[in-house]
Design a protein around this nucleic acid. Structure first.
Lengths: 337, 337
DNA sequence: TTGAAAGCGCTACCAG
DNA sequence: CTGGTAGCGCTTTCAA
């Protein structure tokens, strides 16, 4: 591993010039720059980020926190963020905040706060107010994507409106007996999100004067398998619903699978609608409310990147778009019953 | 942001003592350590990783490269790696190597090689020999997980054996007309993997003296939707296969969905087997060859971490276990035809 | 357009 | 057990 000194010596210039040349700063003659670049390549020289970070105060790194890396929404946002970062030449330090409580505090202290990043994005994570304090005290641009985090601006869909729209679609089709599949996420998803979506569901139901049965307010933990199991039980009862509202596509997948395995046809016997427009939604023929997490990630990262470049900071949150996509999993309920 | 000087001054000791105290090194009296820790907390002091990295030569960071962050296998390995890193107090720098070619070279130069990491894990990525050179020249522990990378030790299942086992399961059930669903991965998956798995499939078929039809060597690109489409076409032909061997569970899901949408029952009309034991395999009732990517991630990370601590470096690759899990998607073919 | 030199904030060695 | 101090490898004025 050669250092800047080696390059300077080999080129017969000062380290200052090498530094300027390699970073493309002005005030270096073109021949000199070329010569230096050549020598640097030859020597395989790459600047140490620690050293330059220490000297300059910049790290060219963004911290990104996720509650889990195995859920479609998070990983899709992540890809968006990553893409924007790559374009900007930034690295990504990934923090998986899932896990045990104690662990989390250590993570915060030992890693998150070590001045290793220039900016920070939280995807779908909740913070305690102490954690928020610490984050904010870092004094660098911060942004949340996904569920709203109090005190931190965010990018995300209007969860209430989204759930409302989905429910209304079922109601418009003529459904009256609708199950709600939602509930908290075991993997530490943002806690407001399931609540807001449920509220949207209930609003739509109330406005249509439809009954909301307690035993039909189900929790699938935002996971396929748990949803499949809980919905399968409902399908076994005599009073079957004609439609399932799922707070996420993953839960909707569980419902579709449960239906098929119970010998019910979708949508003839039961309609299913989800939220997200997951990658696999097409394959399932799932009607859903689409959102675009990748775009949210790109937008979020670029916003932060812009502020790092000195653009004025935006203080307010951004509402991301959503859109109903009708596929084959929803249809009017069959006549009789 | 207070520096170590502030703490030293406030505590009336030298920066050296503060450094030792906070890192839990010996040779600091307990009262002193306590006092220093208290003051540091009060001041919200956290050591700058750049400064300590520069001074110590360690970064306590592991670089992790993935070809995509939206595939179950990669993300599951990632979770395992992450878990091990957290236990060790390491941070993770994530490199998504997907994307455009040119980009990739820049990524390598500008980021991967900046001495930002102490060790490096490549999950399911292929490297050009130039890239491999550069990586190795970093001089720090490296490991590949997933597909085998020439010149780099790796952890992963024996892809040939795995595919063989899956195929044999179908053959043992009495299937003779078996479709192979595999093919290269558009997202830049390791290139050996699909080839090896296909070889395993063909071996088993040949040994059983079964015909391998060219038009039944299908590619689903390791994606659900592409697989669903390509398999749906086959189901439409008159000479239907009685079983589908899929090189990954995701492709198997596509096959199951295609069958259902074609009015075929699984397994009565067609059997489907996959490889991986994906999270959703249970929900699909999918028979599969299970592997444990999470464990592979943990193992890999710990191996590297150990070497960083001075344990002797292992030079050979590690074969990860696999196991047949029979669920409801496979059964003997129906009599006639 | 270039060079000299003063740090950036820590760690690690050597004294005491 | 503690302090002094010389770097780690860059960036960034300030001069030339």
């Amino acid at each position: 591993m050669s250092s800047i000194h080696d390059v300077a010596q080999a080129a017969g210039v000062s380290t200052a010039t090498v530094s300027r040349a390699l970073r493309g700063l002005p005030n270096v003659s073109e021949p000199t720059r070329l010569r230096i670049r050549g020598i640097a390549d030859e020597l395989g020289y790459v600047a140490s980020s620690n050293a330059s970070g220490l000297a300059s105060g910049r790290t060219d790194t963004m911290g990104v926190a996720v509650p889990s890396v195995s859920r479609w929404f998070y990983t899709t946002v992540l890809e968006g963020v990553d893409s924007a970062l790559r374009d900007a030449g930034f690295d990504m330090l990934l923090y998986n905040l899932a896990s045990r409580e104690g662990d989390r505090e250590r993570t915060f202290h030992r890693t998150l706060l070590r001045k290793r990043t220039d900016a920070f994005i939280a995807i779908g994570v909740d913070f305690t107010s102490a954690e928020r304090q610490q984050l904010l005290s870092l004094g660098h641009p911060i942004l949340a994507i996904g569920g709203p985090v109090p005190g931190i601006r965010n990018i995300g869909v209007d969860d209430r409106a989204v759930a409302r729209r989905a429910t209304e679609h079922l109601i418009e089709l003529g459904h009256r007996d609708i199950v709600h599949l939602g509930g908290p996420d075991d993997e530490g998803l943002n806690s407001r999100l399931p609540v807001d979506r449920r509220a949207g569901f209930m609003e739509a139901m109330r406005e249509a004067n439809l009954e909301i049965r307690d035993e039909w307010l189900l929790s699938g933990g935002f996971a396929v398998e748990a949803s499949r199991e809980v919905i399968a039980q409902v399908f076994r009862t005599s009073a079957r619903p004609t439609a399932v509202f799922a707070s996420s596509d993953e839960m909707a997948f569980g419902a579709v699978l449960a239906a098929q395995q119970s010998g019910l046809r979708v949508p003839e016997d039961v309609s299913v609608i989800g939220i997200d427009n997951h990658d696999m939604a097409t394959s399932f023929g799932l009607t859903t409310i689409a959102q675009d997490p990748y775009a949210q990630g790109v937008l979020g990262a670029n916003l932060l990147l812009g502020e790092l470049r000195g653009e004025p900071a935006r203080r307010t949150s951004i509402r991301a778009d959503h859109e109903l996509i009708v596929r084959e999993s929803t249809a009017p309920p069959r006549r009789e019953s």
